[in-house]
Design a protein around this nucleic acid. Structure first.
Ligand SMILES: [Zn+2]
Ligand SMILES: [Zn+2]
Ligand SMILES: [Zn+2]
Ligand SMILES: [Zn+2]
Lengths: 135, 135
DNA sequence: CGTTTAATGTTATTACATTACATCATGCAT
DNA sequence: ATGCATGATGTAATGTAATAACATTAAACG
């Protein structure tokens, strides 16, 4: 059934901000953008983010301490996608690669390690910024 | 030639603490352990860590906001190793896998993304802790 | 209704990291 | 030697990220 409980008001607000943003936002960035909507404290944002991340609708970028809306549909099942983060324009491109996941899986298996979550984040320069140095 | 400048006193202290620790330490953990050696401020630790990380002698674990001494020799060249982090005992096992790196490389290439650094961190339960639940 | 439960709000605190500026040591050019 | 540049250190203050503790409100349900 996957009876999916609807998002609460705060959760929708936070998700909306993330979806509209071209690049990842910190919790405090989000808070700042929702002051006018009545949000006042970090916890309101962190609570909403926790739910969204747990649902797989939003991802946390560990190397940025920031959050981004999921760009795919396959994250709930896969549980593991990667990101390419541009140091110039700040955008984070999400990707999913079966072979990469399989490889990570086999590496874990070799060590008898049971992974529950894996972070894959590359920093560098995106194709766009390579062509147009100043964005 | 690789004329390698010797580490300063603070850098050696920080590296020593990391090498002796069985699991990753936060900058403030390190500071705490070096109070008796005269270190007083976070910046002294962060400065040393920056040098050690830049040298590839130490790695930063993004998902923990913590640091760990490099367990291999191949990091200076490779620039990319991964970690399996146990949620029970807290240990972080470093690994290096050529095929994984090649795959990440090819994924980047497909998107015309030039990666300068890549984070790979899996969280889960290590072999040790699987056998002996309470460590 | 009255009671339970989940979501929110509010304040304070803890944890992580950097900025700014003063001081000290070292090496080297005059 | 003396003065100056350079790099490492020390110190204080501040900025940024995240959570703890507790009060309040809103929905669900008998
Ligand atoms: Zn996703
Ligand atoms: Zn870019
Ligand atoms: Zn290493
Ligand atoms: Zn373990």
């Amino acid at each position: 059934m996957t009876s999916t409980k609807p998002l609460t008001a705060n959760q929708q607000l936070v998700l909306g901000v993330l979806k509209r943003s071209p690049s990842p936002l910190s919790a405090y960035d989000i808070l700042h953008r929702l002051r006018n909507k009545g949000l006042k404290a970090p916890l309101q944002v962190y609570r909403a983010l926790k739910v969204l991340v747990d649902l797989g609708i939003t991802h946390r970028l560990e190397s940025l301490n920031a959050f981004v809306a999921c760009s795919g549909e396959n994250c709930r099942q896969a549980g593991m996608s990667g990101f390419m983060i541009c140091n110039l324009c700040g955008r984070a491109q999400e990707f999913y690669n079966r072979q990469l996941n399989d490889k990570l899986q086999s590496i874990s298996a070799d060590q008898e390690f049971v992974a529950s979550h894996t972070v894959v984040e590359s920093s560098g320069i995106c194709a766009q910024c390579k062509k147009t140095p100043v964005n």
